[in-house]
């Protein structure tokens, strides 16, 4: 289980972007991280991944922090970033192979998984192509395929739908559901509220670096005092009202 307690931090220790954030992601659940641009979603994710150092608070996964055992901590998680970062000098095959090597996946498992992913995302013909010939969507697919290749216990996904074609979005969501059934915890940051409402079990709504609402949809309705509101309405009400 991912546990975030009283997390405060940002790019500079003098000017924290997020303040006193606490939430959990349990095995087998999808938690939606939502908020306006600049609300602190990506900063929270970067803190979990260890790209930024927290000013206060702690992040534990299955009881362990990143600092205590970086290798074990990282082995359990996979990340799909908002912007697809690929190695320009590696082909698609080599991206997948490198990931499999780094995560210690056996060659046979890697070959099996790779074939499944290639079929699912229709990238078989692109196996020996370099990323500079890929569209944004294809680049994002490489990220998605690599993340699922490693069978993580915690999957962190930052705005994954931009650039993906509808079929790829469908497949990505299917894979997320499959992973969820295998007891993987998923933290999904997104602006696509309709998708979040449909697939997420719980939500964390960030506003100006603080948690405005958190919990299941029903719990958030109760917190906001809107018993029949959709996620979209809750979002507009909570964030829009505070902005006025």
């Amino acid at each position: 289980m991912l546990e975030i307690k009283n997390l405060t931090g940002g790019y500079s220790s003098h000017q924290p972007v997020i303040h006193q954030i606490s939430f959990t992601v349990s095995p087998g659940e999808i938690v939606g991280l939502i908020g306006l641009n600049g609300a602190g979603k990506s900063t929270t994710i970067k803190q979990i991944l260890g790209f930024l150092h927290a000013k206060e608070g702690e992040i534990r996964f299955n009881g362990q922090t990143l600092q205590e055992d970086p290798v074990a901590f990282k082995r359990q998680l996979a990340y799909i970033p908002e912007t697809p970062y690929l190695y320009p000098e590696l082909t698609l095959r080599e991206h997948l192979e490198l990931t499999a090597m780094a995560y210690g996946i056996s060659r046979d498992d890697y070959q099996d998984q790779m074939q499944q992913m290639l079929n699912l995302f229709r990238m078989k013909k692109k196996l020996d192509w370099y990323p500079d010939t890929f569209s944004k969507g294809m680049r994002q697919k490489v990220m998605v395929m690599s993340a699922f290749l490693v069978n993580p216990s915690l999957l962190i996904v930052d705005e994954p739908f931009i650039g993906l074609d509808p079929l790829a979005i469908h497949n990505l969501l299917e894979l997320m559901v499959k992973l969820k059934k295998q007891e993987t915890g998923i933290l999904l940051s997104t602006h696509v509220l309709a998708t979040a409402e449909k697939y997420c079990d719980r939500f964390v709504l960030l506003n100006e670096g603080r948690i405005a609402l958190a919990g299941s949809l029903d719990e958030m309705r109760e917190q906001a005092g809107f018993p029949d509101a959709s996620l979209d309405e809750l979002f507009v009400h909570t964030v829009g009202e505070e902005r006025l």
Partner: peptide
Amino acid sequence: IHRFQPWFRLYPLPD
């Protein structure tokens, strides 16, 4: 060249 590549920083291998 790889220092800003997120995966490069995430590989579960000793630094």
